[in-house]
Design a binder for these strands. Structure first.
Lengths: 155, 155
DNA sequence: CGTCGTTTTGGACTCTGTCCAAACGCATCC
DNA sequence: GGATGCGTTTGGACAGAGTCCAAAACGACG
């Protein structure tokens, strides 16, 4: 398992350091969306001796080579996740949970951008905002909705 | 002009304080997207005596009543703008400039999302990323070759 | 195994945003 | 017009997020 991580780092032309292995392994292991400091805290908790700036370095490098994505969930702390396929995010306005939303290539309702605004457009990220099942349930009355076992992150 | 601002505040049920007038007037006057500290700096520069927390209070209140929008341009500082119609944003990956992109639908659009993810979805914000005209010009073509679909795209 | 250049480390620093109690001032009522 | 009450503003301190810098450590390669 660690071998796979080592191989991927090498493939991407990155030096294989303990810190990179540890951070990337953690992100793959726990899944979900996490801030740099959150990652640091977990690693320190596990007895890893790693510097804060190293976490920032690593997630930055991994992001550049496409092993890690920065989950755009609006202003505030940046949330990272280990993922290699493009997708969008849903943010619950009550509990702040961040859920992955698969990208549907077919429907592009309002992604037409008037020409003249920009020269090159590489990507379009979508942030859906609303209320998740769990909060919708507790808000109205009883029914705690089934926790869709998606990836979540609290603040 | 200030009268219009006063009237709008009153319409929304907000007390008319000097700070609210000043901040809202400034946003309408200069246009564009600005962080709270940026707003503070400009006002202090102009001789206004205003506290940092007041700026945060004001933009928060104005946002709640719909006179100000928070421009979602990804992680980092929150950017505010005086606007009352829904729209998206384009962010230049070179100079970081934020441009408004009109939303075709007019109001809250593209709420298509795979069922099961969330219970209620109020809005979908789109962030377009690419290179603006200015940067595309100065960058001198050729360096762009690297940008081969590193990041997946569109929805 | 040694060298070189990339990474990591330690620490300090800036910037953003929030919390709290006390002072202030806007809207309302008399 | 003046007193009153409560929403706002203020000052200061604080936490969190991210960056900068020089020195030490370590991985890759010959």
């Amino acid at each position: 398992m660690t071998d796979a991580v080592v191989q991927r780092l090498r493939e991407k032309g990155l030096r294989v350091t303990r810190q990179r292995q540890v951070v990337y392994s953690l992100l793959r292991e726990i899944g979900g969306h996490h801030s740099a400091d959150e990652i640091l805290a977990i690693l320190v908790d596990r007895g890893e001796d790693i510097h804060r700036q190293s976490v920032y370095n690593v997630v930055g490098d991994l992001q550049q080579v496409g092993l890690v994505m920065c989950a755009d969930a609006g202003p505030g702390r940046a949330l990272y996740e280990a993922s290699d396929h493009w997708h969008h995010h849903f943010v619950c306005r009550v509990c702040q949970v961040v859920l992955d939303v698969p990208c549907i290539e077919g429907s592009k309702p309002c992604l037409e951008i008037p020409e003249g605004v920009a020269s090159v457009i590489d990507e379009a990220q979508v942030i859906f905002r609303g209320v998740c099942h769990g909060c919708a349930g507790t808000e109205t009355a009883g029914t705690m909705a089934t926790g869709t076992g998606a990836t979540g992150t609290q603040n």
